[in-house]
Amino acid sequence: MGARRKAWIVACFLLPNFLGFVVFTAGPVVFSLGASLTNWNLQRTTPTRYVGLANYVELSRDDQFWTYLVNTAYFMIGMPFAIAGSLFLAVLLNQRLRFTTTFRTVLYVPAFTSGVALMILWKALYNPDFGPINAVIEAVLRTIGLGGLEAPQWLLSTRNLFGLDVERLGVVREQFGLGARDALIFMGIWTGVGGGNMLLYLAALSNVPSELTEAAALDGASRWECFRNVTWPQLSPTTFFIVVMSYIGGLQGGFEQARVMTAGGPAGTTTTLAYYIYTKAFEEFQIGYASAVAWVLFGVIFVVTVLNWRFGNRETNLL
């Protein structure tokens, strides 16, 4: 086979995707890097020009950027729980039981229900006064004799589990509690448990050779030991994949929730970087600045991924 013919074959297979990839992904990425070095702003009278790292300098002094970065990170607290939940469900579904097909479908329902409708629904569930969630909480509080405690105000409150302050970085006492951020986290766990991650785990589980678990069981290992020492290590490539994809999604997320449920409020507590980028670019037209925020976000994701890659791969090899 001649070299030219070989190149031609590679091109035939690669190019349909690669050209689109360059035009719609790689190109725009480079473009936005360029934009982040300009003062591009549809509302200004001066022409767009190169401003060097000015946007990045400005951003480092922008209190809002830092609080929204913290918000974004805060929202990822739910991630391990969602992943653990997915795994748990997958393990249950992997038992040889009847109706697993039905269960599988039912548990996947949140993945293809319209996000907007679900969010309206959750907003109702979180109603502080009449919502079912607080009804349950209040009943429980009364039962255990703590009826005097106030149930959370969820989406209307700036409180949060860590007591993060609203307008600046830091922790203050008044902000301890449950509020909008936590409400979104619980919603995220609910949506995340049964989705694609569960399916990925299910697939990985059915691929664990049964001889391994059986051998361990014969050696007298308990079910938990079997899982911990045999199944879990087998799952680690899948776990790694899911973890990476989850935090990439998490760091980029929060846009729809903010837009539909909270408008980023109260007082910006549910604004994530993705929503901030949107606001800056599409509502305030500071496109250069928005691009800079986006690139910092990319930097964060990249660093975390590289760290995770090293740590994660070592973990995989060890197990």
């Binding site: 109603n127 009449f130 919502g131 209307l156």
Partner: peptide, 15 residues
């Protein structure tokens, strides 16, 4: 208040 308003909208939060 916002909380009371949400309550008034019944099981509310429906905007």
């Amino acid at each position: 208040s916002p909380v009371e308003e949400a309550g008034m909208a019944g099981q509310g939060g429906w905007g």
